[in-house]
């Protein structure tokens, strides 16, 4: 059965782009516009993997990422961050939040800076999903 990838991004064009890249390579894409919708889709669709934008209105990707990685039921779902933020900036924000909340949240399974290249994106998804 096709692996299911949840694509979370507030930009419609990015959702279409990423889903088309995935679907044309045999994956099933499910989309969400923000962290709140994303969490609902995680519960509902039990995706095999998530691609996650960081800067989104309503609930940011940072919150959704930490919610997933600290929830025993979902923390096993690999997350590929696709963001306009530099990887260093994102990782720094995580360290600061770890210290602040006294949690240890693992680094994301992959990180792509926007704009994503289709080959890079597919390469990462294949690597992560095995």
């Amino acid at each position: 059965m096709a692996k299911r990838v949840l694509v979370v991004d507030d930009e419609m064009d990015l959702r279409t782009f990423i889903s088309t890249v995935l679907e044309s390579s045999g994956y099933k894409a499910v989309v969400a516009e923000n962290g709140e919708q994303g969490m609902a889709k995680v519960r509902e669709k039990k995706p095999d993997m998530i691609t996650l934008d960081v800067m989104m209105p309503k609930e940011s990707g940072i919150k959704m990422y930490r919610d997933i990685k600290t929830n025993p039921e979902y923390q096993g779902i690999p997350v590929l961050i696709i963001s306009g933020l530099a990887k260093k900036t994102f990782l720094h924000s995580q360290k600061v939040l770890d210290r602040f909340k006294n949690q240890v949240v693992p680094e994301p399974d992959g990180y792509i800076e926007k704009p994503p290249e289709p080959e890079e994106l597919l390469g990462e998804v294949r690597r992560i999903l095995g």
């Binding site: 930009e11 064009d13 990015l14 782009f17 306009g84 926007k114 704009p115 289709p118």
Partner: peptide
């Protein structure tokens, strides 16, 4: 502004990819 431009750039790349993909298939 950078964030906004990166999103536009992603849209352009995405559009470009879709056109190529559509032609290929």
């Amino acid at each position: 502004l950078v964030h906004s431009v990166k999103n536009i750039l992603s849209g352009l790349k995405g559009g470009n990819y879709l056109v190529r993909q559509g032609l290929k298939t």
